[in-house]
Simulated assay, not measured.
Amino acid sequence: MRISDILRRKGHQVATVSPDTSVRDMLAVLAEHKIGAVVVMAGPEIAGIASERDVVRSLHERGADALDGAVASIMTRVVHTCAPTDHIEGLRPVMTELRIRHVPVLEDGRLTGIVSIGDVVKSAIDQLETEREALVDYLQS
Rank of each mutant, 00 (worst) to 15 (best):
K34I: 10
R8V: 07
V29F: 10
I35V: 11
I117N: 01
V23E: 01
R2V: 09
G43C: 13
G90V: 04
R99T: 12
D25Y: 06
R57N: 12
L30D: 03
I125V: 15
G69R: 09
G69M: 11
L59R: 07
V103S: 05
L67N: 07
D108T: 13
A66V: 01
D5V: 09
Q13F: 11
M75N: 00
D108V: 09
P93E: 14
V103W: 01
L91P: 01
V40R: 05
D119M: 05
S73K: 06
D68E: 15
M75G: 00
M1A: 10
R92W: 04
P93N: 14
I88K: 10
E61H: 14
R132V: 15
L7I: 12
R2L: 14
T76W: 01
R2K: 15
I35G: 02
R77Y: 08
L7R: 12
V94G: 01
M26N: 00
M95S: 09
E61G: 08
G11L: 11
A28Q: 10
E97T: 11
P84T: 11
E61N: 14
I100V: 13
P19Q: 07
V78W: 03
E52K: 04
E129C: 07
R24S: 03
G69P: 02
D86S: 12
T112I: 11
R101N: 02
R99V: 07
S58K: 08
A28S: 04
I88L: 10
R77W: 13
P84K: 05
R9P: 08
H87P: 01
H60M: 06
L106Y: 08
A72S: 13
E52W: 05
V71H: 04
G11P: 14
H87S: 11
M1C: 11
D119G: 10
G48K: 08
S123I: 00
D108M: 05
D20Q: 14
G90I: 01
M41G: 07
V78I: 09
D68I: 10
V29T: 13
P104Y: 00
E133V: 10
L135M: 13
K10W: 06
R53N: 05
V55K: 04
L67D: 12
I74G: 02
K34T: 09
K122C: 06
S123T: 06
A37M: 05
H12C: 06
G69I: 00
V17F: 08
E107S: 15
H87V: 09
A50P: 01
H102M: 15
M26A: 02
I74Q: 01
R101T: 03
C82T: 14
L135H: 15
T85R: 04
I125R: 13
I46E: 04
V17M: 09
P19N: 12
A37Y: 03
T81I: 06
A37Q: 02
H12T: 14
S123N: 09
E133I: 03
V121M: 15
L91C: 02
Q127H: 14
I100M: 12
L98G: 07
R9Y: 13
P104W: 00
G48P: 00
S58A: 15
I114Q: 01
T85N: 09
R62Y: 10
